[in-house]
Design a binder for these strands. Structure first.
Lengths: 205, 205
DNA sequence: GGTAAATCCGACCATTTGGTCTTTTTATAT
DNA sequence: ATATAAAAAGACCAAATGGTCGGATTTACC
């Protein structure tokens, strides 16, 4: 195999399995040996490619988490349509993968935020950056929606974004416990309700 | 000191400090020695009172977390007033303590839910029980509110509860990162907006 | 085929962890 | 005061963890 290809392959195998296990068991409860065992690799291989466990994790955040968040939660809400419709569709899709016990990266993000909060500033900075990017894009989308007449003129777009993000992070916590499918259904029905309350009101004659 | 009093005192000191550190650093990243060092106690003292770290933690959940959740998030919404008003006030109070960097037990709960999800079934059962109690009480409060004419007849109380809990858990995740005060303000403004959309509509003449 | 660099192996290390066990201290009852 | 049981001390242990290091393989290139 091509050398740089091999390097990439090993690094990516490590990162993919790393994210998988970190998500399933938590960062502090996942040892490097756990990851290596699953891949039939050795300590030497790991420390040849990564400086430390923390460096490894940060690269996972940058290379996997950030991109996935972008493609599942940010990119889908870009465009000139009604942002409320786009966000609804986007959440519906993301939660559907969550119902089927797959990795929902929104959940991955909020789990890590909870796990590292107050424990590791360096990691927190990287995680918060993703949150900020999401937030900025949400605000932009809502403002554009307001400009295009989809949202009520009085809507505070920053506040709406905070609320939308909150509810999404939160429902992922709830879905982990029981009856994720019904939780999803209930959540979606009420976020629609909320969206209805901030959409542009028909003009009175 | 009286003996049974002394026993209680030591156990409670351990549990209080335990919760404090578990919340600050996470369960898996907090060693028993950490707790003992902070209290100038020894391993012997700890294992005289508790069977294991897990047993210790479960007792913390039952003795501290559950009760605190009850007094801060459940009790305040009981009564015959408009439940939407009560919940608003309740969240406002809880988030205010959170802004001042104190322990907000709603956050403690959601952090632990995230940390133990998929890792420790026994602990998860205890945590989920608290969530269920909260949920049941929320649903009851909303249904009573509907019966008393505070909520619109068409509101799905289960769904509304799920949504309300979601948003609360979620905003706590967001508040950890930056500008908690402004996050709180934005969150409160939008949950009021949502509540307005499910309150009883004035009758048309 | 030989060579040098890239990649990987795995024994090893220091430290930390949850937990055990024997011993000592402390409080209570007689 | 002394016997007794509760409470606490702290040395100790086995397992696990993140990380190191010298050497063995692979790979690319001549």
């Amino acid at each position: 195999m091509n050398k740089s290809l091999k390097r990439m392959a090993t690094m990516q195998r490590l990162q993919n399995t790393g994210l998988e296990l970190f998500y399933a068991q938590g960062y502090y409860d996942t040892s490097i040996d756990d990851i290596l065992k699953k891949l039939d690799l050795s300590k030497g291989a790991f420390y040849y490619h990564f400086e430390s466990k923390e460096d490894f994790f940060i690269q996972i955040i940058e290379n996997l988490l950030a991109r996935k968040i972008y493609s599942t939660l940010i990119e889908p809400i870009e465009g000139h349509d009604n942002p409320l419709t786009l966000i609804t569709k986007c959440f519906d899709d993301a939660l559907e993968t969550a119902v089927h016990n797959e990795m929902d990266y929104g959940c991955v993000l909020s789990n890590f935020l909870a796990e590292f909060n107050g424990k590791n500033d360096v990691v927190m900075r990287h995680l918060n950056e993703i949150v900020t990017v999401w937030e900025v894009n949400l605000v932009t989308a809502l403002q554009k929606g307001k400009f295009n007449g989809y949202l009520d003129r009085h809507v505070d777009c920053e506040a709406a974004s905070t609320f939308i993000m909150s509810s999404y992070f939160g429902v992922r916590v709830l879905m982990t416990s029981a009856a994720p499918s019904s939780k999803k259904y209930r959540f979606m029905s009420q976020i629609r309700q909320y969206f209805k309350s901030i959409e542009a009101k028909p003009v009175n004659f």
